[in-house]
């Protein structure tokens, strides 16, 4: 079984994000970029499936600027077998919207015919949490989102999902799309031999035109703003005072 893993190049999770002065978005000039952490978890899961003999090949795909090559090389260094880069933007500030990404991924799926798509549940830049679901709708495949455990059993996948208030296990018919959550696994470091091999692994470069997909934006960003700064707290003298404040001032009880 072939596993397809979409990976996105995003602002590194350690970077302190700065909003651009005109409010059009986040400043990405000279900022450290890395693989979306949820995608890293998806790559790790795919490699584990390969090591267990469940998967036969792991293909990583990225859609975005040319520099996303580095992200794919990281996936290859972790252990993916080959990579596809769809260059869909020139400017690092251009974000390809989930629907366009899903359409491109659907086209890649038709070409590659994987048995499973493992994706991050969302990218940490825009937190859309939509691409996996849209891809499932476009392909007519079953989907299992927010996975914290994945087991492949023949023609179906047993997926434990992290839902509000607990865990839910569902049985999804293969081929399917699984979007992964934080607790599924702990991604490995790239090993030195794999880093050295990564350059030799195939990385195909494509464009949206190759797949006949229009990636022009359908959404417009009205405003990007810094989150409000948290005000200092107050110390209360007693439980009674706390309850009064929660009732009368905060209005939460």
């Amino acid at each position: 079984m072939k596993v397809l893993v979409p990976v996105k190049r995003v602002i590194d999770y350690n970077v302190k994000v700065r909003v651009k002065a005109d409010g059009s978005g986040v400043d990405l000039a000279n900022v450290k970029m890395s693989m979306n952490p949820f995608d890293e978890i998806a790559v790790e899961e795919a490699i584990r499936l390969k090591e267990e003999g469940v998967a036969s090949e792991v293909v990583a795909v990225s859609i975005g600027v040319k520099q996303a090559q580095e992200t794919l090389r990281t996936a290859l260094a972790m252990g993916a077998d080959r990579a596809i880069l769809i260059v869909a933007a020139d400017d690092v500030h251009t974000d390809i919207e989930p629907l366009a990404v899903a359409k491109l991924l659907a086209a890649v799926v038709k070409e590659e015919e994987p048995g499973l798509v493992l994706a991050g549940k969302q990218a940490i830049d825009n937190d859309m949490n939509a691409t996996g679901q849209m891809l499932s709708a476009l392909l007519g495949w079953s989907q299992a989102t927010f996975a914290s455990e994945v087991t492949i059993e023949g023609d179906h996948a047993l997926v434990t999902r992290e839902v509000d208030g607990g865990l839910q296990t569902i049985k999804a018919k293969m081929p399917c799309i699984v979007t992964v959550d934080l607790r599924l696994n702990e991604p490995r470091y790239a090993s030195l031999p794999n880093i050295m091999k990564a350059k030799k692994k195939p990385l195909d470069e494509k464009t949206p035109d190759d797949y006949g997909v229009d990636v022009s934006p359908r959404l417009s960003i009205v405003k990007t703003a810094e989150p409000p700064t948290r005000k200092a707290g107050v110390k209360v003298g007693s439980v009674d005072e706390l309850i009064t404040k929660l009732k009368d001032e905060a209005g939460v009880i």
């Binding site: 580095e70 090389r73 990281t74 260094a77 470091y189 790239a190 030195l192 880093i195 050295m196 990564a198 350059k199």
Partner: peptide, 15 residues
Amino acid sequence: SDEQEMIVSTVRSFV
């Protein structure tokens, strides 16, 4: 080089 970049980022994450 790409390899050197990855060596640096791997060792740094490890540390």
